[in-house]
Design a binder for these strands. Structure first.
Length: 294
DNA sequence: CGTCTTTGACCCGCGC
DNA sequence: GCGCGGGTCAAAGACG
């Protein structure tokens, strides 16, 4: 499906001076936000668990700032911090233990066990595999990443394959919200797509979790969708620091992606670069109300 | 036939 | 405790 979708030219991410990076020392959240005409509107945020990442937090921050500067972005005013500061950093998806050991982690259970199609009936734990969810345990959200894109296409191609598993009407919005899950059985990344009630031309995409495998490929011809482009600009750096203890995302090459089996990789990431960063997110907590109009 | 979408029902968290 | 809204499940159908 996705792979057949026409990439949306309008969705290209081009950071410019209207974008800003906002570190939040208290919650260790960093938000990248901006407002760009005819391109992308939104924010990018991720959590760095203070206990484990403090030592690299500053470095990460500096690194990010440099990257943003080099890519034309400019530091700016703070944006509202949403997200779930209390949530443990997790690799998400089938992340192997990139999360800290002291906290219950989604990845710890999901890494070995593919998300079971939960037995029984009815919805199970929305955010945590039932296996890992114990009585009294609060649901834990994975790192989130959300952004808004001006596009006529709801579900934008991003190099990964998604399976729609639900759609719900959103309160105070005429547009429904769609729920997608990565088709890779070992990957627990989820994605929500909805249109802004204020501006129907704006598509709000929210990711949660991180892919533990290669993308399935991008369309040839250099047309890049918003996510891919976004990734190429920021993901490498972000993911690098996102993974504690030196675990870094595996490179994801658009060129070989077409051959890369969706679930070829177990999640251990090795040296280097770009990894899809687009695996976080519950927009509801990230994008300010003003931008979304929820 | 395999994969994906649709959709109603169910579960859970949260506010009142 | 109850109701609401969000999130997920899973059966059924559509599609290639």
């Amino acid at each position: 499906m996705d792979c057949k979708d026409e990439p949306d030219p309008e969705a290209e991410f081009i950071p410019d001076s209207s974008w800003s990076l906002t570190p939040d020392s208290d919650t260790a959240n960093y938000f990248f936000s901006g407002d760009r005409d005819n391109s992308i509107l939104g924010e990018f945020g991720w959590n760095l668990q203070s206990t484990d990442l403090e030592p690299i937090q500053e470095e990460a921050r500096g690194h990010l700032l440099r990257e943003l500067e080099s890519s034309g972005a400019m530091l700016g005013s703070p944006v509202a911090v949403g997200g779930d500061p209390a949530a443990p950093v997790s690799s998400g998806g089938c992340g192997r233990d990139v999360s800290t050991s002291t906290q219950p982690s989604v990845s710890s259970s999901s890494s070995e066990d593919p998300p079971e199609k939960s037995t029984g009936s009815g919805g199970k734990s929305p955010e945590i595999p039932s296996k890992a969810r114990k009585k009294g345990q609060k649901r834990i959200r994975q790192p989130r990443f959300a952004f808004m894109t001006k596009s006529e296409v709801d579900h934008l191609e991003d190099g990964y394959r998604w399976r729609k598993y639900g759609q719900k009407a959103v309160k105070n919005s005429p547009f429904p919200r769609s729920y997608y899950r990565c088709t890779n059985s070992k990957c627990t990344v989820k994605k929500r797509v909805e249109r802004s009630s204020e501006d129907p031309t704006v598509v709000i995409t929210t990711y949660e979790g991180q892919h533990c495998h290669h993308s399935v490929g991008f369309p040839r011809g250099g047309i890049i969708n918003h996510e891919a482009t976004f990734a190429s600009h920021l993901a490498p750096q972000v993911s690098h620091f996102f993974y504690p203890r030196g675990q870094v995302a595996r490179a994801h090459h658009p060129t070989d992606a077409q051959q890369a089996p969706v679930d070829a990789e177990p999640c251990m990431v090795s040296e280097a670069t770009p990894r899809h960063p687009s695996d976080e997110g519950l927009l509801g907590d990230i994008v300010h109300p003003g931008m979304r109009g929820r």
